[in-house]
């Protein structure tokens, strides 16, 4: 029974990693054809992917968008997480429900709502619009990550500081902020990753700006090649590194308890 369970769980994990493995495998295959049998080992596709100036431009665009988006989502997420974990106020449930609305609404509906509202108000498409739209989508994730750290913090530290005469602002800057720092870092990394991989809403409000995700989408439809495998493998590796780093940082925050 136990062995059956173990095997089953291993199979589910294999299923989850199968696509990632296949993409990585073909990125090293020397043939232009994406099919078995494999023909030989090469790093050539990585060379091609890295030296593609169009993709490099898209990559830089993605970074220009991801940095402010991650900062905004993390700041708002921290505010929401602080309110939800530190106070039981009137309208708490409503606030929590509103916070997950952007997660539950189909992204295309958010996208077309943005397009209509922007047209009505004359807001131009482009980088600021992408940042605003992505910040909203990522906000529920940031709030969750930071709340998961705040829940574990020892509230007595904050109470002790208040008892010793610290003002609300002092409690925040001297006690809460240092203790939740790791949660903020984790949220920033995860928001960064989510921003660079977001495609749907971005494509509706991007105007003429082309971040990497949109370029990959069009290459994927019209110019399929192992170069995309190499690119995807690079993206996945970078994401795994960022997420793993943020997870390490977040778990270290647990040490603050007790």
């Amino acid at each position: 029974m136990e062995r059956l369970l173990r095997t089953y769980v291993a199979l589910v994990y294999a299923f989850m990693y199968l696509p990632v493995a296949v993409v990585a495998l073909f990125s090293f295959n020397s043939s232009e054809m994406l099919a078995f049998p494999m023909t030989g080992f090469t790093l050539g596709w990585y060379d091609v992917a890295i030296h593609d100036s169009r993709l490099l431009g898209g990559f830089l665009n993605a970074l220009t968008i991801a940095a402010p988006t991650a900062a905004i989502a993390t700041t708002l997420g921290a505010m929401a997480a602080l309110a939800l974990t530190r106070r039981r106020f009137r309208g708490w449930t409503l606030f929590a429900a509103l916070l997950i609305v952007p997660f539950f609404i189909p992204k295309i509906i958010l996208a077309v709502a943005d397009v209509i509202a922007m047209a009505a108000l004359g807001v131009p498409h482009g980088v600021p619009a992408i940042i605003a739209a992505q910040s909203l989508i990522i906000l529920p994730f940031s709030a969750m990550v930071i709340a998961s750290v705040l829940i574990r913090l020892d509230r007595r530290l904050e109470e002790a500081a208040a008892d010793l005469g610290a003002s609300g602002w002092q409690v925040f800057t001297r006690v809460q902020l240092p203790l939740m720092r790791n949660g903020l870092i984790a949220s920033f990394f995860i928001a960064f990753v989510l921003s660079t991989s977001e495609y749907l809403v971005t494509s509706f409000v991007s105007g003429r700006t082309q971040p990497l995700a949109i370029m990959i989408a069009s290459d994927f439809r019209f110019r399929l090649s192992p170069k995309l495998d190499a690119l995807a493998t690079l993206i996945v590796s970078a994401n795994v590194l960022l997420v793993a780093a943020s997870e390490l940082v977040r778990r270290r925050a647990k040490g603050a308890v007790g």
Partner: peptide
């Protein structure tokens, strides 16, 4: 695998 993005 969630963080790899829809398109990948």
């Amino acid at each position: 695998p969630l963080y790899t993005g829809d398109l990948v």
